[in-house]
């Protein structure tokens, strides 16, 4: 059964000049973030969203998580409409957003996770074990009792992933999850993602990293300016270089990176 379904979804952001904007130059207008987007993702699949900045990847994740509502069309999660049954959808979905500092700075990592786990209705008797487990999976065991105001960017990002995992979601949304991670943590994270997909959790991963897409993805959606350019499987053993070529071929963008840089960029 398909866990996540987009049916002809359209999302437009309308820009309204700020109130009392007498001195400013800001004018109204609109940006089409998603146009007639349809796709589905079954249980246990890692679906990679690729696309240039502003292509609609994050918007698609936010629509699934109910942070945003669609202007047209329907988003379904486990058979629930994200507009009509938002609470049931949120019970199913965990999201690790690109915003790093979305935590309470004067609480420790463990206290932050405990707080969000309570709001996500994780049973108190399971909470400690689950928090220990996700801290271990994200390599934050030693910093568990450190106030998060002292965290580096990478540690914030790991904590964001831990927060998304602690509720054991049926659908996991990851927005550039390894952007600030070191190579060792990234590799461990990819193993964790693959293990989750086997459980089976549906994972939607927005990324610019071709190595990540090739390593963990089962299928990829290529978006450009809110439209779906391609929806195809990631073939077993397909290289990051092959995905990179496919990306530039489909988007029509010019790959200006010299060969040496390209090779480095496709490494974890």
């Amino acid at each position: 059964m398909d866990r996540v379904v987009f049916e002809s979804v359209r999302k437009v952001f309308r820009h309204h000049p700020a109130l009392f904007n007498w001195m400013g130059r800001e004018r109204g207008g609109e940006t089409v973030a998603l146009e007639n987007l349809s796709f589905s993702a079954p249980a246990g699949q890692v679906l990679v969203l690729l696309g240039p900045n502003g292509s609609g990847k994050t918007t698609a994740l936010k629509l699934i998580s109910t942070i945003l509502l669609p202007d047209a069309g329907t988003v379904w999660v486990d058979g629930c409409d994200t507009v009509k049954h938002a609470r049931r959808v949120r019970q199913q979905v965990g999201i690790a957003v690109a915003t790093e500092r979305s935590f309470f700075p004067r609480l420790s990592a463990r206290e932050n996770l405990d707080f969000f786990a309570a709001l996500d209705e994780v049973p108190p008797r399971d909470r400690r074990a689950r928090i220990d487990s996700v801290l271990r999976d994200t390599g934050l065991e030693e910093q568990a009792d450190t106030l998060v105001m002292k965290f580096s960017s990478g540690m914030y990002q790991r904590l964001g992933i831990a927060r998304a995992l602690v509720k054991r979601p049926g659908v996991l949304l990851l927005d550039e999850p390894t952007r600030s991670l070191d190579a060792g943590t990234t590799a461990h994270f990819w193993t964790t993602v693959r293990a989750l997909a086997g459980q089976p959790t549906t994972i939607l991963l927005a990324t610019h990293n071709f190595a990540e897409a090739a390593t963990v993805g089962d299928r990829l959606l290529l978006l450009r300016r809110g439209r779906l350019l391609a929806d195809r499987p990631v073939r077993a053993g397909e290289s990051a270089e092959a995905l990179r070529s496919f990306y530039f071929h489909m988007t029509g963008e010019v790959d200006e990176a010299p060969g040496a840089i390209r090779r480095v960029e496709t490494l974890p």
Partner: peptide
Amino acid sequence: QTGTMEVLMTTSTEPAEL
């Protein structure tokens, strides 16, 4: 400002209850 707003809105707790 810290970015917790959107995350709080994705938890299982209804905004009014929160």
